[in-house]
């Protein structure tokens, strides 16, 4: 059982940034991982690009296209992680889609993940009903298979929480990823339902882009996840994005700890 992801929440409220691997290129991805770790990231989500990311809004869809148009493959990403592991021990989780893992071979994917030093995996198109096929193999290779709950989950939260590993990813709003000015979901109640079932950290993602939003979400849970706001910075600055992303991560981390 991989506890590195869970342990990352023990130091206080966690900040979890997301980037798409290979956007703008894999060399920059490596630099981003190291810089975000130094800037205070507690766990880092690494997106493996997919041609048709159905849970993503336009910002991350475009990052996927930018990465894929350079011909970046799952094998290139494993190699990149292996290299970056010599510079950082920050917990790393992959975020991708079922077909990327399935077509690679579930066992081969999990084994390579473990061998290069990954800690977890998030598949937004694999709900609780379908997770066994992936989660059992992930468990064999010490990869935490991270489950999501949504504002529509209601009574499903209990069962999902019971079988959850690593942390529970609380989707803050309806819709796809992307920044939002308002998050109106009662996050606290969702988190309470999880905690009543299992003592596991809960981090909130979808729609968060400012330090005050991140603090508001982390106050009701154990941490905040930010993707689109960071990917926007990568899109804007390209290969020069590292210091800008690091600065943003520091502000967000400071924000939730304030």
């Amino acid at each position: 059982m991989n506890n590195r992801v869970t342990d990352a929440f023990k130091k206080g409220k966690a900040f979890i940034p997301f980037i798409t691997c290979g956007d703008p290129d894999l060399e920059t991805t490596k630099e981003l991982i190291v810089a975000m770790d130094q800037a205070g990231a507690d766990v880092i989500e690494l997106g493996i690009p997919f041609s048709d990311p159905t849970a993503e809004g336009p910002v991350i869809q475009e990052a996927n296209i930018r990465a894929l148009s350079q011909g970046i493959t799952t094998d290139d990403i494993f190699a990149m992680v292996k290299e970056v592991r010599q510079q950082t021990q920050v917990p790393l989780v992959f975020m991708t889609y079922a077909n990327v893992v399935y077509s690679y071979g579930i066992e081969r994917f999990m084994k390579n993940s473990r061998d290069v030093g990954m800690d977890g995996l998030i598949l937004p198109d694999v709900p609780h009903e379908e997770k066994a096929e992936f989660a059992q193999v992930a468990d064999d290779f010490d990869i935490a298979f991270i489950s999501l709950i949504a504002p529509t989950s209601k009574e499903r939260i209990r069962q999902i929480a019971k079988d959850a590993e690593g942390f529970v990813y609380c989707v803050s709003s309806l819709g796809v990823t992307g920044t939002r000015s308002d998050i109106t979901t009662d996050i606290k109640s969702m988190v309470d339902l999880v905690k009543a079932e299992k003592d596991i950290p809960c981090a909130v993602g979808f729609g968060i882009s400012t330090p005050s939003q991140a603090k508001q979400m982390a106050d009701q849970s154990d941490g905040a996840i930010v993707g689109s706001a960071i990917v926007k910075i990568c899109a804007k600055y390209g290969k020069d994005c590292v210091p800008y992303v690091a600065q943003f991560v520091k502000e967000m981390k400071d924000g939730i700890c304030a």
Binding site: V126, E130, I149, T152, S153, K154, G175
Partner: peptide, 22 residues
């Protein structure tokens, strides 16, 4: 394994947000 299988095919590979809807 979920409902709605046709042999090894089918299933419900969708975001959690839609699960209660289906």
């Amino acid at each position: 394994m979920s409902n709605g299988r046709f042999g090894q095919h089918g299933g419900q590979y969708i975001p959690e947000t839609l699960m209660n809807a289906v």
